[in-house]
């Protein structure tokens, strides 16, 4: 299995731990990753506000780049994945839009035909590699630990567009965590939004929303929160200290992991190679 890796803006400009850990663990499970040279932002959710057509061009452009390489595309970000799926659907249904975008893509010598499939990291790990293969590959099971799975809204919504996980009962991330020897628990706040999409305009509200979720985790005695979305991670991990002081609650102290980091630990990879030294939340709680 070989994919054109699309880290997206957030991962490749600041969430280096995700890129490091994904590039470290996926090849060990038989997934070959190829850098998508010349890629740009997917256009969602910022440029889509300014120009709906410009957004669709941006997404189509990245899909066209993957198509030129002849690979399916693997975005690391939930929202990039959603954006690509939405635009692929729109371009399939609307010949006029596709012509307009292709006319513009020709300026850069590109063409969109819709040949590349869009895959989500949950699909790659859960549906292609498979939980059993992961169980077999684990050398250092994460025993006596309980993690909260946070798939992130766009991994399971909207169900009108094909999403990697089930809208009613998203379980893939839980099953992937269990494969590492750790426990998970269906907690009531699992599907709650992190609030990250308004962090560039209404930062306080986004911190409060993320804070209420982090606070709820304490009740269920989790050892940490696990996600595959860089936007969610950014709020829960990188902004956890800001959340603490904003809502004045020092008991908020939740280690936050990318699933690929946790997987890497279970595969016996050193924490620095997985970028765990870059996490700002108290991950050392489970590293010792």
């Amino acid at each position: 299995m070989r994919y054109a890796l699309f880290p997206g803006c957030t991962v490749q400009t600041e969430q280096y731990g995700y890129e490091l850990s994904a590039k470290e663990v996926l090849p060990r499970l038989g997934i070959e990753l190829v850098d998508l040279d010349g890629a740009s932002c997917c256009g969602f959710p910022t440029f889509s506000t300014t120009s709906p057509v410009g957004w669709k061009y941006m997404s189509a452009r990245n899909l066209a780049l993957a198509e030129r390489l002849g690979f399916d595309i693997l975005p690391l970000c939930n929202s990039c994945h959603l954006s690509f799926c939405q635009v692929q659907k729109d371009l399939k249904q609307d010949d006029e839009l596709r012509n307009l975008i292709n006319k513009t893509l020709h300026i850069e010598g590109l063409e969109y035909q819709g040949r590349s499939r869009i895959v989500h990291i949950l699909e790659v790990l859960h549906d292609q590699v498979g939980v059993e293969k992961i169980v077999e590959t684990v050398v250092k099971p994460l025993k006596n630990m309980k993690f909260a799975a946070h798939p992130g809204c766009h991994a399971f919504r909207p169900s009108g567009l094909k999403r990697p996980d089930d809208n009613e009962d998203p379980k893939k991330l839980d099953e992937l965590i269990s494969a590492l020897g750790a426990e998970t628990l269906d907690y009531p706040e699992k599907k709650d939004c992190c609030g990250s999409h308004i962090s560039i305009s209404e930062e306080m509200e986004s911190l409060i929303i993320a804070g209420s979720k982090l606070k709820a985790l304490g009740k269920h005695r989790f050892n940490g929160l696990v996600t595959t979305c860089p936007h969610c991670f950014k709020l829960f991990d990188s902004k956890q200290r800001e959340i603490q002081s904003l809502i004045g609650d020092k008991t908020i102290n939740v280690p936050v992991f990318y699933y690929t980091q946790l997987l890497g630990l279970a595969l016996g990879i050193r924490p620095e190679k997985l970028g765990l030294h870059l996490n700002l939340s108290p991950v050392e709680q489970i590293l010792t």
Partner: peptide, 30 residues
């Protein structure tokens, strides 16, 4: 510093900006 590969960016920034400009000026909703 983390030995990550070079940032992926549009190789011809001028053409990319031109294309983006052309589209975002359009007042159509698809």
């Amino acid at each position: 510093g983390l030995c990550l590969s070079e940032l992926s960016l549009p190789s011809d920034a001028r053409r990319f900006t031109k294309a983006l400009n052309q589209l975002s000026r359009m007042r159509v909703v698809y």
